[in-house]
Amino acid sequence: MNIFRLLGDISHLLAIIILLRKIWMSRSCAGISGKSQLLFGLVYTTRYLDLITSYISLYNSVMKVVFLAASYATIYLMYVKFKATYDHNHDTFRIEFLVVPAVALALLINHDFQVVEILWTFSIYLESVAILPQLFMVSKTGEAESITSHYLFALGVYRGLYLLNWIYRFWAEDHYDLIAIVAGVVQTVLYCDFFYLYITKVLRGKKLQLPA
């Protein structure tokens, strides 16, 4: 463990808590993409299967349970409890265009052709594009509530910090995982446009408005 990965995990946890709290407190999921949340649920489910088989550390196991629980809770709130507030009209990204290529790529490019490893690889590829429905929805509605933009910022920063973690691990442990790194770069780059808007607008107290 290193400071970059710890801060990254904390930022990731913060993002998930911010979102869950926003939906729960406002009793509404307006402006939130349920499709992205479904994809995140799929990412954690396919990646954390080893929760039962391999024990790495208490921290690792606890965080996996928290991420899975928070993800399922968010999906439950969006699609069951507060589904009347779910914005179908703006959450229209075709997620099959993300899932199918991720499956294909995981079968083609992986470290080991075993079920758990293929699922892990699929989760890495899918996570790199899972935010697209949410970013697409923000661009369609043309704006995002500030709490939603804080959520997106924390979520984008988490994988950015993981990039620093991978640089550190390459230098300090001579260990690197090219699949995770390439997907992590793609994932972080997708947020760049949002990062720019967040820094220049939201941090100045303005609403996040995308140029129409």
Partner: peptide
């Protein structure tokens, strides 16, 4: 590169 035997990251 020492390929990750197990994935120790979240």
């Amino acid at each position: 590169s020492t390929l990750p035997k197990i994935h120790d990251e979240l």
